[in-house]
Design a protein around this nucleic acid. Structure first.
Length: 529
DNA sequence: GGTGCCGGGTG
DNA sequence: CACCCGGCACC
């Protein structure tokens, strides 16, 4: 279960954009495919997208150069300029099966046909005749990505980066490298890449064409959910910038989790969480060490103009882009009346890691304290360009939906000492942020401890335990009235769980195999109810 | 009576 | 805090 520990690094250098715009509305249509790949070579930037040019029948590769500018190259030019896209893989079957809509990533982990998921082709990007394998690719990247930001980057251009293949790949379909399990980093980045990729292609609220937030295509959602669930099963996955500075932002949209997500998560967790060697369990659920990732945020600027998803690394660049392309102004002039600010968003990309997310999800994490609200992003003031962190993306991307909400609980043997997630039995309608933004509070559909079971919620809700007040405290900050009256149910004992506990499983003679809680005569954390 | 685990004690 | 344990409720 190496896959449980994934996503140590976020694909900072990975930038994806839907060349055709439509911001997520048709990213399954196969009209345009986006691939993010940062190539360390100085003479190459980031391949942002590969899009089909219906007028010429050829394909255009959108490259972001290190200076933040975008250039488009016909596929022919790409080849002529020495950038060739090849693959050594044999992933055809995968591609054809997944018609670009379903997530291949999650299948890798959770699908029944897990075998096929291993051993992805080795995608290669050839730059000026130099074949860049994963190792090479990670050595240096454009977009200001620091070399240490990533050890591996399995996300590469699709197999046979021919236009054909390019065409077939949707943004939600990222080839998953195989035979990379050993390091584990590959999977991490795959997950990270998938998340970012899908995110960037999700509908933008500011995009009029995107319609209501709920308009996210099912396929997209499913892909998201699947990929996310995969990352959940990895036990460590993305912290989508839930850093402290962002907690104060009440407008962080993050729709409630779907049951699918939780289900997937639970299932995967359950599968992983069967009786194992305690050592393994310890390893898998080991508490990540919280770290600061403040300075690991890379700010990118994304054009919000309808049907335009340009992503540039500099504000000036994006402003220039908007002025020239969308506002029809003289591109040479640096004059800016600030109007451009309306048309691009600042995107914080956590270049550090996705996996550290869990570690930061402390009991006071907004995840538990403030369930992601569901609402459209209000118009952003001109004075401050839209600041949309990934988790706060204006659209209800699956990422924002679930990443923070579902990754919040770490299961450890000491988990009982941490604040356990509590499903507050409050109607979503009752919760409203002080800013007037309605928030949807659903009982976390995701059970934190890996072992699903109805009892868990009953238990957390119904019993006044020491751990509960912490939860209430944080909730109260959001909306005191939403907090049920403290239960003075002293003496109320929660019903005994039905699950076998360590004592029964291992027996007294193997007490050292018990979870710590059991050893300490605390509520078993290994076999939760 | 065995078990789970709360509540409290100790270092 | 980590660790331990008395004692009680549940089965």
């Amino acid at each position: 279960m190496n896959s449980k520990r994934l996503l140590d690094k976020s694909p900072a250098g990975i930038r994806v954009s839907t060349a055709s715009g439509q911001a997520g509305n048709n990213h399954h249509a196969g009209n345009s495919k986006a691939y993010g790949k940062t190539v360390g070579a100085a003479d190459c930037g980031v391949i942002l997208a590969c899009k089909n040019d219906p007028s010429t029948g050829s394909f255009l590769y959108t490259l972001m150069l290190d200076d933040g500018t975008l250039k488009e190259y016909p596929s022919g030019d790409i080849a002529q300029n020495g950038i060739a896209l090849t693959t050594s893989g044999k992933e055809k079957h995968l591609d054809s099966k997944k018609t670009g809509c379903s997530s291949s990533v999650d299948d890798r982990d959770t699908g029944p046909s897990g075998v096929q998921k291993r051993g992805s082709p080795t995608y290669r990007l050839i730059v000026n005749g130099r074949k860049l394998d994963d190792q090479t690719l990670m050595e240096g990247r454009g977009l200001g990505r620091r070399a240490e930001d990533s050890k591996k980057d399995p996300l590469s251009l699709g197999p046979d980066a021919s236009p054909e293949e390019c065409y077939q790949h949707t943004s939600s379909h990222i080839p998953v490298p195989r035979n990379r399990k050993a390091s584990g980093h590959a999977d991490k980045e795959v997950m990270a890449a998938t998340v970012l990729t899908s995110l960037s292609t999700s509908p933008l609220v500011l995009n009029p064409s995107s319609g209501t937030p709920a308009a996210v295509p099912d396929a997209t959602s499913r892909g998201w959910k699947e990929s996310l669930s995969a990352s959940y099963s990895s036990s460590t996955s993305g912290n989508w910038s839930w850093d402290a500075s962002d907690q104060s932002v009440p407008s962080t949209p993050s729709p409630p989790l779907s049951n699918d997500v939780s289900k997937s998560f639970l299932l995967s967790s359950q599968g992983d969480d069967t009786i194992e060697e305690s050592e393994t369990t310890h390893f898998l659920f080991e508490d990540p060490i919280p770290r600061k990732r403040k300075n690991s945020m890379k700010v990118m600027f994304k054009c919000l103009w309808k049907n335009c998803d340009k992503v540039l690394s500099t504000s000036s660049g994006i402003q220039r882009h908007i002025r020239t392309v969308h506002l029809g102004r003289n591109g040479d002039s640096d004059y800016s009346d600030g109007e451009e600010d309306f048309y691009y968003s600042e995107i914080e990309v956590n270049v550090d890691t996705l996996s550290e997310g869990l570690s930061s999800l402390t009991p006071t994490s907004p995840t538990t304290a403030a369930p992601p609200p569901v609402f459209p992003v209000p118009e952003l003031p001109q004075s401050e360009p839209a600041r949309i962190a990934l988790r706060g993306a204006p659209c209800h991307t699956p990422l924002s939906q679930s990443a923070p909400s579902t990754l919040c609980h770490i299961r450890t043997d000491h988990a009982y000492q941490a604040t356990a997630p509590v499903s507050v039995p409050v109607s979503p309608k009752l919760i409203q942020s002080e800013s007037g933004i309605s928030m949807s509070w659903q009982s976390p559909p995701v059970i934190f401890k890996g072992l699903p079971g109805p009892v868990t919620q009953i238990r957390t809700i119904g019993v006044g335990e020491k751990r509960q007040p912490v939860q209430h405290a944080t909730v109260t900050k959001i909306h005191p009235s939403a907090t049920p009256a403290p239960k003075p149910t002293t003496g109320a004992r929660k019903p005994r769980g039905e699950a076998k506990k360590c004592r029964k499983v291992y027996g007294m003679e193997k007490k050292d195999m018990w979870c710590t809680a059991c050893r300490w005569k605390k509520a078993c954390q290994r076999f939760t109810d």
